[in-house]
């Protein structure tokens, strides 16, 4: 237990040491998204399901903050450790791989949730100022669930990519060519009801679509997918990404960059 506690403490202390870069910077991005898309452009966007666009956007931005920061937390932890040699210390200590994965997963959930919650609070302020009403959470327990699984999936994915990556280019290529399109096409900014049926079908192949909509259901009480499907897909996501991270730690290279 002490070993696991130490790993989690290290993960959290690490990102809090550079809080401007790890927490403040993504919150500023979310703030700008809210201001530009939610408040300015959002006023002219009409959704088929009758939800105000700002209300629709806030959960999407929260998930985006959660998953991006969970991914970045674990991947940067691995990469900086490869540079500094810290990873060698962890690898030569009597630490099972599962401890490393769960500790980095929790670190990712913690940082991602911190960014998402602050984004939600800022979003709620905008919501109150624009609509004169507070944004309530419809299903708080499901919200906590999606915070946990969303953070874990992307933190585990971050370990997988960062351990197997041999250069910064490979790491950023994953973010740019896979993570970013999946996030944007997963329904952060749009409801698939407004899309052409072909794009609707393609969106349904995106696992992130279920996570974002599960989160949106927890906040607003309605979303583009059924809750049970979102829960099922996200649970499978946790299992798959956990084993991917396990595979990377077993087979990957720990050579210094």
């Amino acid at each position: 237990m002490i070993i696991f506690y130490t790993l989690v403490k290290r993960e959290i202390k690490r990102f809090l040491k550079v809080v401007i870069q790890t927490v403040v910077s993504p919150i500023i991005s979310s703030f700008l998204y809210l201001l530009v898309f939610g408040v300015s452009l959002g006023a002219s966007v009409k959704l088929n399901n009758g939800i105000n666009y700002l209300s629709f956007l806030i959960p999407g931005l929260m998930v985006m903050g959660l998953i991006n920061n969970a991914f970045q937390n674990s991947s940067s932890s691995v990469v900086t450790s490869k540079f500094s040699g810290d990873l060698e210390d962890i690898r030569v200590a009597p630490i099972p791989n599962s401890y490393i994965i769960w500790a980095m997963g929790l670190g990712g959930v913690f940082r991602g949730s911190l960014v998402a919650v602050i984004t939600g609070v800022v979003g709620s302020l905008f919501h109150y100022m624009q609509l004169n009403e507070l944004l309530y959470v419809s299903h708080p327990i499901w919200l906590l669930y999606f915070f946990a699984v969303g953070g874990l999936i992307f933190a585990f994915l971050g370990i997988f990519v960062a351990v197997l990556a041999n250069t910064f280019d490979q790491l950023s290529a994953f973010s740019t060519f896979i993570l970013l399109p999946l996030t944007y096409l997963g329904g952060v900014f749009i409801s698939i009801e407004n899309l052409h049926p072909i794009w609707q079908a393609i969106s349904k192949l995106n696992p992130l679509f279920y996570l974002i909509n599960g989160f949106r259901y927890s906040m607003l009480g309605q979303a583009d997918v059924n809750l049970s499907i979102a829960v099922g897909v996200s649970l499978v996501g946790v299992l798959v990404t956990f084993f991917m991270a396990q595979f990377a730690l077993t087979k990957g290279s720990f050579a210094r960059w």
Partner: peptide, 17 residues
């Protein structure tokens, strides 16, 4: 070459490992 932690923190983590 870790940039984040002090000597004391590093030894504390190492003990925890």
């Amino acid at each position: 070459n870790t940039g984040f932690f002090t000597i004391e923190e590093i030894l504390d983590f190492q003990s925890g490992y």
